[in-house]
């Protein structure tokens, strides 16, 4: 491997003097990482011990503010934040608790490391947490975010964004790029999404979307309700499906839209024309198409829930 490891810093930090002994020690400070030759293009963060908050800014350096909490000095010494900066512009930050057989057992709930990171806007961010909050804001190169049970929040981010959550809620606001959200059992909230593709599944959780504009939209839940207010893209495809949950879609249209819906009870609103029923599907078209224009297609489905569709003129 030709890649040369430039720096391996272990930020142990000195425990700050605590004026009130009753309070557990808290450790802070800022570490700044300057790009080594190549600008910082990719930051990978793995913090299973607390929150990660990444904020994009116009600078070139990476500023890391680790905030450690532990019940005593001995435990504080076991908390580690490791940083590896590679010359190709990749920076990896990980947190850990040192294994120490001689110390008394240290419960995970008793310690915490929160990371606040100011990163160059153009860096792609891959971050993972366990139960802590994961926040990404003001970035221009998207990223991939992973959580077990902590909430994910993305705000004002351009570029492709992938999120993976087991039971933590996901909130995406002002994302300009393709989005892929996968949540097993928690709610997904989308506001102002503007990209080529939007794929979101929430399992047992519900999905709510506002001001969504994407050429291909695919929203799926097993149990949760789906409420979407979207803009129909020309020649776009919008597929909203749930097994048990209700589906409620309101669409702003710029051209013709063909709607196909199937559900326990289907309501396609008053603005639709040419409604027909076949094999349980209700099909309707809103607006007229000429030879050059291809209608946007909308497919709404709920096996056991109700389906509702309306046009916002």
């Amino acid at each position: 491997m030709k890649r040369v490891l430039l720096a391996l810093c272990v930020l142990t930090g000195v425990a700050a003097a605590d004026p009130k002994p009753a309070k557990p020690p808290i450790n802070g400070g800022t570490v700044e990482v300057a790009p080594a030759g190549h600008p910082i293009t990719h930051v990978a963060i793995d913090n299973p011990l607390g929150d990660v908050h990444v904020i994009g800014y116009d600078g070139k350096t990476l500023k890391i503010e680790p905030r450690k909490q532990a019940p005593d000095e001995e435990a504080m010494d076991r908390l580690r934040v490791s940083l590896v900066a590679n010359p190709d512009g990749t920076v990896r930050i990980t947190t850990a608790v040192d294994r120490d057989r001689e110390s008394k057992p240290l419960a995970r709930s008793a310690v915490r490391i929160d990371l606040v990171i100011h990163a160059p806007r153009n860096a792609k961010i891959d971050a993972s947490v366990s139960a802590g909050k994961l926040v990404l804001e003001n970035m221009d190169a998207g990223g991939e975010l992973d959580t077990a049970s902590g909430p994910i929040s993305v705000h004002n981010v351009s570029g492709e964004v992938w999120t993976h959550s087991l039971s933590g809620s996901t909130q995406l606001v002002q994302v300009f790029g393709s989005v892929d959200v996968q949540s097993m059992s928690a709610d997904v909230d989308l506001d102002t999404i503007n990209g080529e593709h939007l794929v979101a599944s929430a399992g047992k959780g519900k999905i709510s979307g506002r001001r969504v504009h994407a050429r291909d939209v695919e929203l799926t839940t097993t149990d949760g309700r789906i409420v979407l207010e979207a803009e129909a893209a020309l020649r776009g495809h919008l597929v909203v499906s749930s097994l048990h949950g209700d589906v409620d879609v309101r669409l702003h249209r710029h051209g013709a839209v063909v709607v196909k819906a199937r559900g326990n009870r289907v309501e396609l609103g008053t603005a639709t024309t040419r409604t027909s029923k076949a094999d349980g599907w209700v099909t309707a078209q809103v607006g007229q198409t000429d030879q050059r224009e291809v209608a946007a297609s909308v497919e709404l489905r709920s096996r056991y829930g109700n389906v509702q569709f309306s046009i916002i003129e």
Binding site: V97, D98, P105, L106, S130, G203, T222
Partner: peptide, 29 residues
């Protein structure tokens, strides 16, 4: 009172189990 290191080491397997359970629940339908 598990030590944090053991807890952290065991977590990926637990999370994997949760995903397996989610897949099984879906498959049951």
């Amino acid at each position: 009172d598990l030590d944090a290191t053991a807890d952290l080491a065991a977590e990926p397997a637990h999370v994997g189990d949760e995903y397996r359970q989610a897949a099984d629940e879906l498959l049951a339908q």
